[in-house]
Design a protein around this nucleic acid. Sequence first.
DNA 1: TACGAAATGGAATATTTATTCTATTAATCC
DNA 2: GGATTAATAGAATAAATATTCCATTTCGTA
Lengths: 277, 277
Amino acid sequence: MTAPQSSALVPQTVTEVLERLDAGADILPKRLKQCALFTRRHLHLIPVSTVSEMARASGVAPSAYMRFCQALGFSGYSEMQGLFKAQVTDFRPDYQDRLGNLRFQADVGTGQLLAEFAEAGHKSLLSLANSVTNEGLDRIARGMAQARVIHLIGLRRAYAVVSSMAYLLDKLEVPSSLHYASGMLNASGTIFEGDVVFAVSFAPFSPETIRLARESADRGIKVYGLTDSDNCPLNEFATEMLIAREDEVAGFRSLTASITLTTTLAVAIKAMQSSVD
Amino acid sequence: MTAPQSSALVPQTVTEVLERLDAGADILPKRLKQCALFTRRHLHLIPVSTVSEMARASGVAPSAYMRFCQALGFSGYSEMQGLFKAQVTDFRPDYQDRLGNLRFQADVGTGQLLAEFAEAGHKSLLSLANSVTNEGLDRIARGMAQARVIHLIGLRRAYAVVSSMAYLLDKLEVPSSLHYASGMLNASGTIFEGDVVFAVSFAPFSPETIRLARESADRGIKVYGLTDSDNCPLNEFATEMLIAREDEVAGFRSLTASITLTTTLAVAIKAMQSSVD
DNA sequence: TACGAAATGGAATATTTATTCTATTAATCC
DNA sequence: GGATTAATAGAATAAATATTCCATTTCGTA
């Protein structure tokens, strides 16, 4: 008689699943370890796959994957999948509730807050893998790799994203130029044919960023964009767009998914340039 | 009799679906228009939802949502869902073959690279939760909350971290000052008693950052630090230190843990100030 | 190498979910 | 305003999927 009665043992968060996955990596029997290994690397497939698919992908029988789920503390695959589906499904509180939520958070511990942001980070990374396709990212990396100079544009929350990218591209010796905030954004005179623009803009979108990107696009410069929302104005004229949604805590978002994506992009660009040589 | 026979009419890409969605918005009957409206805004729910769920969310009967899918050119919901699931599944390499040597692949695709960085992000977040204690973070947040002005210092890779923090603190109306790169770092004349310095420095440590932080500490200013290594020079004089280790991919690190931590810190600082009021 | 315990894979069953059918209601046209 | 057609919602059916069971194999130990 299998006993999935005590719901206290059922993992409630992605973080908990990851911990058990890592803990079990050593002690699990062969087939179940295969499951753990594959699942660890492909968490994002769980919400959209059936047991049979996950099992086949892990190289085990469906029943084995079933036992794997139970070893993790779930009653079965459905329960585990439910946890991951919730990531996508979960409703996000609205912008204006921020202040109220913040007060509410005041009396919970700082550590609890960190745990929530970490959890949000896990979720964001999962959804990142969901929304970015190999082909799309590949095309963008290829397009940017051919640029004479990559112009990086991003203000406010997006500024940290482009500045980290600028640092990394510089280290990789990929020619790039970071357009600094306020005033400097008039500098479309420094963008020439053969260059590309990489613009990052999150809702609500900075008119400055959009304007410079649009001006460039109008002049025939290829514009690639990164945003967090479907209705980003960059959509209208960008050659290609990336989307990185960030899970939020009490109305605040980290930059986990965005920076993970731009880091990947930078490395991919360099890799493409190298392989052409 | 609806006739879904000709597969030429079946949308093959998300773009095509969006086009039909927009085209049909006018001509579709009431209930089906409801479906179109909701679906247009919640495309990401399709891969993880059942027909009933999508129907209920759209405010229609399951059978109505069914007809909606067929109006779009699909044979049914499953076929439509398949298209969206494929987005996620897309860069799934043929599993069984590559099982053993996942991490030793020679030809690493862009999607695989993203998966690796995401994986590194997960690990970084896990280790963050392990290395940062509730009490330590609490003390630091409390200490920084009492500052007249928070001075943010960070160069190179750390610059993105402090600049994102500066943005967030600004939005939270916590007085802070971001010390910009090169030249500006002499500005220890602008740091006064009652202020606090938050310095971020990753190995190899920028002498500039260390120097300014040390000068401040020597003058009795409280210095808090964030680093990725035990032997950070800030250790010698900082009031308190935070450590965020980043997992690396092929020698490259993202900033997942660091920015998650500083985001948490910023929000915690604001929360403390609010609860004192 | 032989024994017991644990693990495994395939087949049987239960459950969920998609899809179709039909009576009823609403809209359109003459 | 009545006749005709389209649209709708709920129930019935079909298909897919999760889950359990059990005979067989593998593993660890003496």
